[in-house]
């Protein structure tokens, strides 16, 4: 679940005019430690263009030799806190940053994993199978009738099941280990094998792939060919159980499935959304 939405403090390690540069090892240690704690860090040295500053507050660190300048943003939009780090060891610099942040909340690595599907729209054909398959309402339809990830905080950590039912291998989970689900290039032969492993038609009970050849009629046939709701539900569960058995998705996904009534309601809602979106195309 995505429960933390606080943006990390942006730290600027300033080593330009008027500052003494840190020793290389110290610089690397400070940056690694701050990043591993979740901070965003800008190293301001020479060359390379800067990212525009959209942040409302910056912490500027520099070896100003005891004369940290009081800075203010010319536009008045950014709060700038300047600290002198002359002679400080890396650990002391980290402590200074933590102290400067105070009790301002921030996301922290290790407490949560950013796990959610990412759609590759260069491959997606908007067939809506992911919408029909996901039982946790992760997917939705945009105003222009395109499939999109709308509730990524509903996604079950380490469950990439929807990527296996996508006929176009268009769903990625960047934190997944193996390709092409992790975003690696799609080998078309592998893609065919992926399709065979989990065939959505076995979940929904229709000859979906052949109907997909004709996009204009797909929405009419896909759901009308669906067998009874109970049968479809059984098959969906069987498929998920197999994926758990294969070690492809964590067991707690099965344990967290909604009740049968809820699943049926969700399936109906997804069916209606998908049909409306496809019909509008």
């Amino acid at each position: 679940m995505i429960t933390h939405t606080h943006r990390p403090l942006r730290v600027v390690l300033y080593e330009g005019t008027g500052c003494i540069a840190l020793p290389t090892e110290a610089r690397a240690k400070v940056m690694m430690t701050l990043l591993d704690k979740g901070y965003a860090v800008t190293r301001s040295g020479r060359g390379a263009s800067a990212m525009p500053h959209d942040d409302c507050s910056l912490l500027v660190l520099g070896a100003f030799e005891g004369k940290a300048p009081a800075l203010e943003d010319a536009t008045g939009q950014i709060t700038i806190d300047t600290r002198d780090i002359t002679g400080l060891e890396p650990d002391a610099i980290i402590s200074l940053v933590e102290k400067s942040r105070g009790d301002k909340p921030m996301n922290e690595p290790g407490k949560w994993k950013p796990w959610f599907p990412v759609i590759d729209y260069t491959r997606c054909t908007n067939c809506m199978q992911c919408l029909s398959f996901c039982l946790f309402d992760v997917y939705g339809v945009s105003e222009d009738n395109k499939i999109q990830v709308q509730n990524n905080d509903n996604c079950k950590t380490n469950c990439p099941a929807c990527s296996r039912v996508c006929p176009e291998v268009a769903i990625m989970f960047p934190k997944y280990q193996g390709g092409p689900i992790n975003g690696d290039e799609v080998n078309e032969n592998e893609a065919k094998r992926e399709k065979i492993k989990v065939d959505i038609s076995s979940l929904l009970g229709g000859d979906i792939y052949s109907t997909l050849k004709d996009r204009s009629t797909a929405f009419k046939s896909r759901f009308s060919k669906e067998r009874s709701a109970d049968k479809a539900l059984d098959e969906r569960k069987k498929c998920l159980t197999k994926l758990v058995g294969d070690g492809f998705i964590p067991a707690d996904v099965l344990a967290s499935l909604p009740s049968t009534d809820e699943i049926l309601k969700k399936a109906e809602a997804a069916k209606a959304k998908a049909a409306a979106a496809l019909a509008a195309q």
């Binding site: 990390p8 290389t24 610089r27 690397a28 940056m31 990043l35 591993d36 704690k37 979740g38 901070y39 965003a40 860090v41 800008t42 190293r43 301001s44 040295g45 020479r46 060359g47 390379a48 263009s49 800067a50 990212m51 996301n107 690595p109 950013p114 960047p174 934190k175």
Partner: peptide
């Protein structure tokens, strides 16, 4: 860090 160039870093793009 060994270079003299400016650069941006983030904890995690995901």
């Amino acid at each position: 860090c060994e270079s003299s160039t400016s650069f941006e870093t983030v904890a995690d793009l995901c």
